[in-house]
Every structure is written in structure tokens, then in C-alpha cells.
Amino acid sequence: MRIVFRCDPALRETLPRPLPASQALPAWLREMPGTAFSDLHGRDVRTVKQCPPFVDAMRHGFVMRLPCDVVVADGRFSWDWDLPPLAGETQPRSPLSFHAPAQVAGSPLAAEGRTLIKFNSFWTIELEAGYSLFATHPVNREDLPFRTLTGMVDSDRFNAVGILFPAAWIDERFEGVLAAGTPVAQCFPVSREAMSLAFEDLTPERIDAHDDVANALHATPGVYRKIYRDKRPSSDR
């Protein structure tokens, strides 16, 4: 899958580039223990750090990043970003803008006093034909003070302008700096090919297989990772 990112030539050397999500994992994932004591079980149990589906989801696709520091104080957002002159007339010049709260009225996103922001993108994204861009909150990043809304854009066709990533600011007590490079959206291509859903009974052979795999999973740690998990290709470029 080839994904093409483009930006204004004046920003090419200074604008944070989208990163493979595998290169933007949070420090807490690296630092958390692999096991922890469970009062329920009376012994140490493996943490999500040892759960391949949990980690693989965080490593999937790429992340769009905040282009500069944003200071949050007294409910206000500010930044000091000296942008050079840009070639186009309509490109954004601020790292974020805002949505009117009425745009989410009647939805679970609506909350008294909640701020709705948009992370502006200075990169355009072009996908191969037949693919859309699925964009969502950085996976399992409950530590971030915002929640990026999930959306899907047909970026094989819509790629002349950057995508805006709307988000609800959920931590009203947050005071400080949202640092440049912070992941603001996690994205991956999805095929628009229609799905065909099939429903079948478990055959005796599949029931036996179910028992074999379930017993192996309970008996030995790492069965999924060692036998079933596919080795992910590198996405460093």
C-alpha cells in the first residue's frame, strides 16, 4: 500500500511528518510492567503489554502529529508558531481551529461547556484507487486530554486538501503544553469493496479445533503470538 503525503515546499523541512504508528508508541507502554499482581486471582497476571492484539492495534497504520506546541491555560488555547509565507492562499496557518458545540447537539459528544476543536492538517494524503482513509483517536491513548472523532474519507479521490481531524476536549482540568509531535489521529487505509457475510454451523471438526486451541491458550502463554500472529511488515519509509 503506497500512501503519498504532500505539503507546502516552505514547510517541508520543519513540519512534523506523519509516522508509522509503530514509531509513535507512548512511553507508558514501554515502561509499564509485563505482569502485575491480581487480587482477584491471588497471583501475578500478564498485563496488556503482553497482549499482541492490544499492541498491534496501537502499531497499525500511521499517526498524524501536532505541528507545534499548543499551550492550554484557563480554558484557552494558544501557540507561538512562526510560519513562513505559504504558496497557496487557502492553506491553514494555525495548528487548530474550533467547531460550534451545536454541531454535536443530541449526540453523546455533547456536554455542558465542552470545547470542540479541529486539528488542522498541513499534509494532503493520497491513497491507491478503491481505498478510503479511516481516521480515529490514537488507539488506546486514554492519556490524551482530547478524543479525536472517528471518520472515513475517500482519499483516493479527495486528496487536494488536507483532512481536518475534529476532537472533543474532554479533560477540562488539563493545564500545560500539548507538545509538538503529539499524535492527534491514527489512520489506516480500508478497502471500499463490498462485504459478503456468511453464517455457518460449527462442524464437528471445527468444534474439535475450537477445543484444541482454547485448551492450548489456557495452558501455555504466547500461543497466539507464536503460532497465529502474522509477522508485520516494516513501515519505516
Rank of each mutant, 00 (worst) to 15 (best):
A73G: 03
E175C: 08
L217P: 00
I163L: 08
W79H: 15
D201R: 14
V45A: 06
V139C: 10
D69E: 12
P221M: 04
G88L: 11
R30C: 07
Y131H: 13
R192W: 09
R6W: 01
P20A: 10
D80W: 03
Y228A: 12
I227T: 15
P204C: 07
C68H: 06
W81N: 10
R232F: 06
P92A: 04
K226D: 14
R157M: 14
A135L: 13
A27C: 04
P189G: 07
F174N: 05
R93D: 06
R147Q: 15
L164C: 14
L144I: 04
P20R: 04
M32P: 08
A168F: 05
E89H: 15
T220W: 08
G130Y: 01
V153R: 06
S22V: 11
D143R: 11
M1V: 13
F165S: 05
D208W: 00
H41M: 15
L149C: 08
G162W: 10
P183D: 02
S22F: 04
G181R: 10
I163V: 13
H99C: 10
P101A: 04
L197G: 03
A168R: 05
W79C: 08
R43E: 14
A24H: 01
A102E: 11
P16C: 13
S191D: 10
T115L: 00
F62V: 08
P189H: 08
K118P: 00
V55Y: 04
I207Y: 05
A110Y: 08
E126P: 02
Q91W: 11
A185W: 05
S234Q: 01
S196E: 12
A198H: 13
D39P: 05
C68P: 07
L66P: 12
G42V: 05
A209N: 00
F158S: 15
V4K: 12
G222Y: 02
T220F: 08
P233A: 01
T35R: 14
A219D: 14
A57T: 13
M1Q: 08
S196Q: 13
P67E: 11
E112Q: 07
L96E: 11
A27Q: 13
F62M: 06
R30H: 15
K226L: 05
A214L: 13
D208F: 02
A198C: 09
